[in-house]
Amino acid sequence: MRHRSSATSRGAPTRAACSEAGQPRLPRGVRLTDAGAALAERGRAIRRRLRAAQADLDVFARLDRGTLRLGSFPTTS
């Protein structure tokens, strides 16, 4: 029985996944297909928008920006 090195056996799931997805496997990893590149760009755009939304929420949480309106009635003051 032949023993595989741990690096070789760890690469097996990657090779199998690439094969199933139809990804070309290169000596130094995988290359995205055109469809994969388009999907990756959409993912990066979503991540940018989520970070911007989080930054907006952080500003409001720190009360650095925004409007605070107070009202009062003479009978309760």
Rank of each mutant, 00 (worst) to 15 (best):
M1G: 06
M1H: 02
M1D: 09
R2S: 06
R2F: 02
H3Y: 04
H3M: 03
S5C: 05
S5F: 05
S6G: 02
S6H: 11
A7Y: 07
T8A: 15
T8M: 06
S9W: 10
S9I: 13
R10I: 00
R10Q: 13
G11N: 13
G11P: 01
G11R: 14
G11S: 12
P13R: 06
T14C: 11
T14G: 11
R15T: 06
A16I: 15
A16Q: 07
A17T: 12
A17D: 10
A17K: 09
C18G: 15
C18L: 13
C18N: 03
C18D: 01
S19D: 11
S19G: 04
S19V: 00
E20M: 05
E20D: 09
A21G: 08
A21Q: 00
A21M: 07
P24R: 06
P24A: 09
L26V: 11
L26F: 08
L26R: 15
R28E: 05
R28V: 12
G29V: 01
G29W: 14
G29N: 02
G29L: 00
V30S: 11
V30W: 01
R31N: 08
R31G: 14
L32V: 02
L32H: 11
T33M: 10
D34P: 10
D34C: 07
A35Q: 07
A35E: 10
A37D: 13
A37W: 06
A38R: 08
L39T: 00
L39G: 02
L39A: 07
A40C: 04
E41R: 09
G43M: 07
R44G: 01
A45W: 06
I46H: 12
R47T: 04
R47P: 00
R47F: 02
R48N: 02
R48L: 12
R48E: 04
R49N: 12
R49Y: 02
L50M: 12
R51H: 06
A52V: 01
A52G: 09
A52R: 04
A53R: 10
A53G: 06
A53Y: 12
Q54G: 10
Q54H: 14
Q54K: 13
A55D: 15
A55V: 05
D56M: 08
D56S: 07
L57E: 09
L57W: 04
L57F: 04
L57R: 09
D58W: 07
V59N: 05
F60R: 12
F60V: 15
F60G: 04
A61P: 01
A61Q: 07
L63W: 03
D64V: 10
R65F: 04
G66Q: 08
T67R: 03
T67P: 01
T67L: 14
L68C: 03
R69I: 08
R69F: 03
R69Y: 05
R69L: 03
L70V: 02
L70H: 03
G71Y: 05
G71T: 08
S72F: 12
F73N: 00
F73M: 11
P74C: 05
P74Y: 02
P74M: 08
T76S: 12
T76V: 06
T76K: 08
S77A: 15
